[in-house]
């Protein structure tokens, strides 16, 4: 089984690798894992509290090429989307874009889980009402 050119491109030149401050009230962090293959994936989004748009997204994945490519692609797609638009990203979109074979579909599932976890974390922080963001409302 060969990786598609897009997977190889993301694997060799991953976009948006790195970390955002976990302490920042506008940053949501999702840490997910696929124990079957021993993969761990961290994906973070930084949301503009006024517009509700994701200004920045970072990831760090320890896993196979497909897992790295899936999360790299996810961060590319997340930037510029609203939180609600981000939640509409489906793992099947990732599968299609990267032409993942059936045995690697779980990597795209992991990326979707990571997006959902990161946004859930962001929303939880907002609901707690961080003082710095007293005026910002979660976007419905």
């Amino acid at each position: 089984m060969a990786y598609s050119d897009k997977v190889i491109d993301h694997y060799e030149n991953p976009r948006n690798v790195g970390s955002l401050s976990k302490e920042d009230a506008n940053v949501g962090t999702g840490l997910v894992g696929a124990p079957e293959c021993g993969d761990v994936m961290k994906l973070q989004v930084k949301v503009n509290p006024v517009t509700g748009v994701i200004d920045d997204a970072k990831f760090k994945t320890f896993g196979c090429g497909s897992a790295i490519a899936s999360s790299s692609l996810a961060t590319e797609w997340l930037k510029g989307k609203t939180v609600e638009e981000a939640l509409a990203i489906k793992n099947t979109d990732i599968v299609e874009e990267l032409a993942l074979p059936p045995v690697k579909i779980h990597c795209s599932v992991l990326a979707e889980d990571a997006i959902k976890a990161a946004i859930a974390d962001y929303k939880a922080k907002q609901e707690k009402g961080e003082p710095a963001l007293a005026g910002a409302q979660p976007h419905a």
Binding site: A34, P35, E36, C37, P102, V103, I105, H106, V109, L110
Partner: peptide, 11 residues
């Protein structure tokens, strides 16, 4: 405990 099973049976 195979990777392909993940989607169906998440732990």
């Amino acid at each position: 405990l195979k990777a392909e099973a993940t989607a169906a049976s998440k732990v």
